[in-house]
Design a protein around this nucleic acid. Sequence first.
DNA 1: CCGTTGACTCTTT
DNA 2: AAAAGAGCCAACG
Length: 107
Amino acid sequence: MIAKSKVSKSLSFNERCYVLLRKVPKGKVTTYKALANELGTAAYRAVGNAMNKNPHAPKTPCHRVINADGRLGGFASGLENKKKLLKAEGVKIENEKIDLDKYGYFF
DNA sequence: CCGTTGACTCTTT
DNA sequence: AAAAGAGCCAACG
């Protein structure tokens, strides 16, 4: 049968966030705002919710998503772990903040 | 179906 | 600069 099953035609809001997030290169970070903006919406919160559910972990680099202010925001597995992962990828965190001017990745 | 909550962000006080 | 309010969307009870 030609069951399309998972057609990439109607991805859920969450799945779209993951796909977009997967495009972020290693060593860079993005913001909830940038993702929502690419999705054509202003639901910054819905994006954060999607990350918290994150059914594709660790395939989806949800740790590369931070606040628009450059703050880390939050992390389901522990914010400390998020900092460590970013640091391991080459992202330097100064004063609990990330320099979006250098590490911020936009679409 | 309605109200509340949440890994957010912007504007106003 | 810090705090409070408003706005947006999805998931849960």
